[in-house]
Design a protein around this nucleic acid. Structure first.
Lengths: 200, 200
DNA sequence: CTCGCCAAGTTAGTATCTCTAACATATGTT
DNA sequence: AACATATGTTAGAGATACTAACTTGGCGAG
């Protein structure tokens, strides 16, 4: 069954994927709260009732889209580590840089996941994806501290770093660093914090 | 003119304040995205058209409510400093504690201001209120570092601290510290970070 | 090959929401 | 006492999320 080359325009081919992509574009363009299912339908070229054959409701559409984004994010974090010597703070910094980049590049997704829509979006798969991301950080922190397992201290420092990078992402999104220099300052900030949290 | 003791029920007395309070309650109860003007009207006991005599639109209602909250926040930060010796990191920690407490206690307001509704809420008064808050932190950081003015270094370290506390607030709201101990751990984390960022 | 099933579309309709327009009332000033 | 104005009201337009009932067409069984 060749999904991609359907000729009929009555059946879309892969509407589910089409709607997720439309959702992504619209959330990035108008923000999480400006998004509407109707808009997504118009963009995908289907009637406003069509999505409900694929998603329970608006939230499930958003969750599906965010899950896709989280997976992209995870892959990017892994590739960001390539070529950097293991057990060095540079690896932690690289993860932080990728985290912030994601928050800025896929700002709508970031805000959807972390900006307090969480109540509505509550979904075990989202929670799991988040913990997986944190797990990557914890592993690098452990390596930096010379630990082979995730001890309480590793978890504690990892959480500190996550808090910092997470907050930095939000402040950058809100343009708070506009008067504080650009990318250079951001990069210095990331490695400076990593050093401070990992030392001792 | 005695605003508070109007007998007529046709004229509310102080509907503007009543709506702001209703907005506050509902945003805390249902979250920023679950809030509706209609609900606020029902809670305040007026028709759905009434708010538009006092506010341009829904966003202006939210902005007014958030501004009230920011002022409460500012006052609390100032009182949190009382009795703590000047120039000590304990003052910075106290501000951080109050920041996190506010994010948890007035969670709806916090998310409205910082969670990405900002596009819509863009308002110079909100921006100003935020910078005023940051100013309080910068002053304490300067005192800790023995500076009399806000130097670039002071601003840099203040920004680091803000990032951390800001991120910590979001993660706590999202329950990420549930598996990491409670208030004790939170307190230790705050002072630990303050030390690490202020030392050197 | 064709027949019927069922997945995946459609149109139509309901309930709700924001905001506007036109009208009503009460307050306090002259 | 009368009016001007601020502050309410009702009615309604246009958009939205979602449901119900109908339609289409691809695919497998005979």
């Amino acid at each position: 069954m060749n999904e991609a080359l359907k000729k009929s325009r009555y059946h879309h081919g892969d509407l589910r994927a089409g709607l997720i992509e439309a959702t992504r574009l619209l959330v990035e363009e108008k923000g999480p709260d400006g998004f509407s299912v109707s808009d997504a339908c118009r963009l995908a070229g289907v009637s406003t009732a069509a999505p409900y054959k694929h998603f329970k409701d608006k939230n499930e559409m958003l969750v599906a889209m965010v899950l896709e984004g989280m997976e992209r994010h995870r892959v990017r974090m892994m590739t960001a580590l390539e070529g950097i010597p293991e057990g060095t703070p540079a690896r932690v910094t690289a993860l932080g840089r990728e985290y912030v980049d994601f928050a800025l590049r896929e700002n709508g997704i970031f805000r959807l996941k972390f900006g307090g829509f969480t109540d509505r979006l509550e979904d075990p798969r989202l929670q799991a994806a988040g913990e997986q991301t944190f797990g990557i950080v914890l592993q690098e922190v452990a390596a930096c501290l010379g630990e082979t397992t995730v001890t309480a201290d590793v978890r504690r420092r990892g959480f500190m770093l996550w808090s910092f990078v997470h907050g930095l992402s939000f402040l950058l999104v809100d343009q708070k660093l506009s008067a504080m220099g650009g990318d250079v300052e951001r990069e210095a900030l990331l490695s400076d914090i990593a050093d401070r949290v990992l030392k001792d």
